[in-house]
């Protein structure tokens, strides 16, 4: 199903006034990486940047695979995205969350869209501002239901502002990002949405900063605020320190050390994050 939607999107794009071959005019690293939720960004925070290196009147496609291994859990995310005109992005992502210590697994599918509203990452004093939606649906509602989640699907909405400051620190360019997200998700949706007693949206703040040590290597930090609403176990905010290597405009690698805090009663979940991304 996901693949069919992507192929359909590709055909639609190719059918409009765009060239058949993807193009790559954007400056290297300005596409960012891809988050575990499929949107262009850091590792866990979506940015206002649009995935891929397509500029105006161009299109781009990406595919990514990410592995996060913390003490008692393993998250895998695979996804693909399509972007048009450096304006619009659609992404499809499948997450699998193995409960290594407890046994069993959780999972969710995420369909994301992002639209650039204003500003240009590199060129305007106004930050680049984008709005995004993420439709999420869990694979199996049994466990989320058992721990008190209300729904097996949810819709996150976010507003992201990103800006590059040239020559900011030691002559290096600094990428800054602020994202405000409205969400009902428990553990980003892996444990369902809302609770049996509360179905309100929560406004959360997410930030990323990254310094481009070279043109294609970035060192950064991310913080993702999360709701803490299920009574069975505490949910913590997430953070990570990452190093991204944009080998060229077609291949990038991100390694990170992530601190995911308490998950389902398992405290201090820390570990490694590794992501590979290919871009057309």
């Amino acid at each position: 199903m996901l693949q069919k939607i992507l192929i359909l999107c590709l055909c639609v794009v190719a059918g409009i006034h765009h060239p058949v071959i993807a193009d790559t005019s954007k400056v290297i690293a300005t596409a960012g990486a891809t988050t575990i939720e499929g949107a262009a960004g850091g590792g866990i925070v979506p940015w206002a940047v649009i995935n891929g290196y397509a500029s105006t009147e161009q299109w781009s496609a990406t595919a990514m695979s990410t592995l996060v291994t913390v003490d008692d859990f393993t998250l895998q995310a695979v996804g693909a995205s399509l972007s048009v005109d450096n304006r619009f992005e659609v992404s499809l992502t499948k997450q699998t969350f193995d409960l290594d210590t407890m046994g069993g697994k959780l999972g969710q599918d995420i369909i994301g869209i992002k639209y650039k509203l204003a500003g240009e990452l590199l060129y305007t004093s106004l930050p680049q501002i984008s709005v995004g939606l993420q439709y999420k649906r869990v694979d199996d509602f049994t466990i989320p239901n058992a721990v008190g989640a209300r729904n097996d699907w949810g819709l996150d909405a976010y507003l992201a502002a990103s800006k590059v400051y040239f020559d900011a620190i030691a002559g290096r360019n600094l990428v800054t990002n602020l994202t405000l997200r409205a969400t009902k998700a428990n553990q980003t949706g892996l444990l369902g949405f809302g609770t049996t007693t509360n179905n309100d949206y929560h406004l959360q703040t997410e930030v990323s900063v990254a310094l481009l040590l070279t043109d294609n290597i970035a060192l950064g930090y991310e913080y993702k605020q999360k709701p803490n609403q299920l009574s069975f176990a505490k949910e913590d905010d997430w953070q990570d320190i990452f190093m991204a290597w944009f080998i060229n405009k077609h291949l990038s690698l991100v390694g990170a050390y992530a601190n995911l805090g308490s998950i389902a009663g398992f405290e201090r979940q820390k570990g490694w994050y590794l992501s590979i991304e290919g871009t057309l």
Partner: peptide, 24 residues
């Protein structure tokens, strides 16, 4: 358009690199 501008920025960066101009 932006694609033109992006491309020109890329060529300038490459020219500066070819000329061994330091990143800062």
């Amino acid at each position: 358009n932006q694609a033109d501008f992006d491309a020109v920025v890329g060529h300038l960066i490459n020219a500066l690199k070819q000329q061994n101009v330091p990143i800062a």
